[in-house]
């Protein structure tokens, strides 16, 4: 038996495979397809203080080896999560992590404070990288001072594990990672989607109602790998890698580049059983290469 267990700050994960925010609902939606307790963790849909309807349809465009989305953080607000969703999912035997969003620092704080009360949520993922909202979102994640400000404020009200989700739409992601580490982030996760655009040549119009949207899927994988490697070399806190992971080999590449854990996103749309296939595939890889513990692989890239 290989040891797939990892630790991020003080949260233990039975394996390094999580499902990414916005691509797995609240976990429940996948329960027909997979045994949720097999997952290392579930990062639930981005949550804001108030109910958000998100952006108008159309919100999706298929692109070569990927897709653009412009969902815009549609969610029923943190109160609904606390009262209606949390009771349904809290006993799933995995780590449930809430993706926290805000258009102002006060909103981030208000959401975090309410999530802090929930015993079975061991960590939050602070999303300072959503490209699909007009206010806040990515704006916080694209400069060091604003990223520092929001992380500093949230850190003050949150003692559990604080993961900060970084935007790839920056000149130096390593600089932003160092900045949030400096304010007490326990981990960074990356990448969120890359800002992109699709045009319908026949109609001579943008495909998305918002004109631009976030690119995800295999198309972004080389960029995501490069960024995970750069951030791993810049910070001491654990890195959670994602971006275009479709199978176990992709996941192992991220781990070799320095990721302690990975998240599976868009791949779930193609096949909701992929997260479990990735877990099994990592085990097989370790057996084949006689690696006893996954921690031996993290950052194990040979140069």
């Amino acid at each position: 038996m290989v040891d797939l267990g990892i630790k991020i700050h003080n949260v233990e994960f039975k394996n390094p495979v999580l499902t990414a925010s916005g691509t797995c609902g609240f976990g429940e939606e996948l329960s027909d397809f997979i045994d949720l307790s097999r997952l290392g963790g579930i990062v639930v849909k981005g949550t804001t203080l108030n109910h958000r309807e998100g952006n108008p349809y159309p919100r999706m465009a298929e692109t070569p080896s990927g897709m653009l989305n412009a969902v815009g953080l549609q969610n029923k607000g943190v109160k609904n999560f606390v009262n209606n969703i949390y009771p349904r999912i809290k006993d799933i035997d995995t780590n449930i992590i809430v993706n926290v969003n805000g258009s102002t620092i006060d909103e981030y704080i208000a959401v975090t404070e309410q999530i802090n009360e929930l015993d079975k949520i061991p960590a939050i993922e602070l999303n300072i990288s959503c490209p699909n909202v007009k206010e806040g979102g990515m704006a916080f994640g694209v400069s060091c001072p604003s990223a520092e400000a929001v992380v500093k404020a949230v850190r003050k009200v949150y003692n559990k594990t604080l993961i900060v989700k970084l935007s790839p739409n920056v000149t130096s992601i390593a600089e932003i990672a160092k900045a949030v580490e400096g304010q007490g982030a326990d981990s960074v996760s990356l990448i969120n989607t890359l800002l992109g655009m699709a045009i319908d040549a026949e109609k001579r119009r943008p495909v998305l109602s918002t004109v631009t949207g976030g690119l995800s899927g295999p198309a972004v994988k080389p960029i995501a790998l490069r960024m995970v490697w750069q951030v791993y070399n810049a910070v001491k806190i654990p890195v959670i890698g994602m971006g275009g992971i479709m199978n176990a080999t992709d996941a192992i590449e991220f781990i070799l580049a320095g990721a302690s854990a990975v998240q599976i996103g868009t791949a779930i749309f193609k096949d909701p059983t992929i997260p479990v296939q990735v877990i099994d595939g990592i085990s097989s890889y370790m057996e084949k290469h006689k690696i006893g513990s996954i921690s031996e692989l993290i950052g194990g890239l040979q140069m």
């Binding site: 939606e29 849909k45 998100g54 999706m60 897709m67 989305n69 969902v71 779930i268 749309f269 909701p272």
Partner: peptide, 9 residues
């Protein structure tokens, strides 16, 4: 995109 309620597209 997904067909089973997770992407909200």
């Amino acid at each position: 995109a997904c067909g089973f309620g997770v992407c909200l597209c």
